[in-house]
Design a protein around this nucleic acid. Sequence first.
DNA 1: AACTCGGGGGC
DNA 2: GCCCCAGAGTT
Length: 362
Amino acid sequence: MNWQSDLNVIETVFVPSLERWYEYHKRDLPWRHTRNPYYIWLSEVILQQTRVAQGKPYYERFIAAYPTINDLAHADERELLRLWQGLGYYSRARNLHQTARHITEQLNGKFPETYHELLKMKGIGVYTAAAIASFAFGERVSVVDGNVYRVLARVFGIDEDITTTSAKKTFAALAARLIQQASDPATYNQAIMEFGAIQCTPVAPDCLLCPVQQQCVAYLTGQQNRLPIKAKKAPVRNRYFQYLIFKNGDKIAMRERTDRDIWQNLYDFYLLETDEPKPMLRDLLLPDSVNELVQQGVLSTMPTGAMQLLSHQRIQAMFYVIDLPDKLAGHLPTGLKWYSQAMIGDLPKPVLIANYLEKSFG
DNA sequence: AACTCGGGGGC
DNA sequence: GCCCCAGAGTT
């Protein structure tokens, strides 16, 4: 079935229907009370792959901590990551910082105002560029996010796999055509996303009260639960982290993660990763220098375990606390540094580590 | 085109 | 369990 044959009929009904629906059903969200491109940008980056309910408190904290892009540009990166802690995808925070500096220093503080200029910024891709361009500057460019894929796939009965490049082109072309019908591009873009989030939900969409029910191919053919089509993701990778937590008095040894891996620029402890579970400290193959520290230290508490589920990894961690006498405090493995409890509170940490610290030392 | 990058919430 | 969330960058 070719959706293009029905497009002319549907599009003139679909767009105004969504705009009307939005006017009545839209949520009152803080970033909807501004056209300041800096605030819009901040909200959009926070909301990438993140639910509104999760991102909202972060948005409030960020605009309080960094009221202007100039403030963000001059922020301490560690403090910024600490504010971002728990949101995940930490490269978003690093790119945010980098782009704030770029705009402040290279662009003389002038925020890019067009879709194409916005796309050049680090951390601003096709979705975010379209969102800022339309919301802040009124440009007639269409956003295509997860909500839009779902709504369009259902209403227009598109059964291409949305993870493929060709499908992305199909949806982008359709969205670009639809927004030509919009009375206001910003309102329409927000409307279709809000509609996907509230009405045309992934599971159990509210078709009975849907304003475009009679225009929806999926509803009319009973395919709401089949569309959109999406290829399954690769299974999650299992990883086993053995953490050695060196203590000296009230100080704990931590290090910044700098490898090309998860949690870049966040802080954790001395880590030995193994390819299978190693619940016994004595089974760990440690470097000689580290092993010597372990031998001379005191295993001060029972080892504890924890699991952290990411979207693409399942991390099973063991935590071994080792008390070091003063005379060995200067012999930490490379990269580790001593931090007092108060200092650790200011360090950005993965949720796995923050939870552990809270439970064991909080 | 495929991989990688977090964490949480809903069912 | 499984899916998805106002995606982007790298390989």
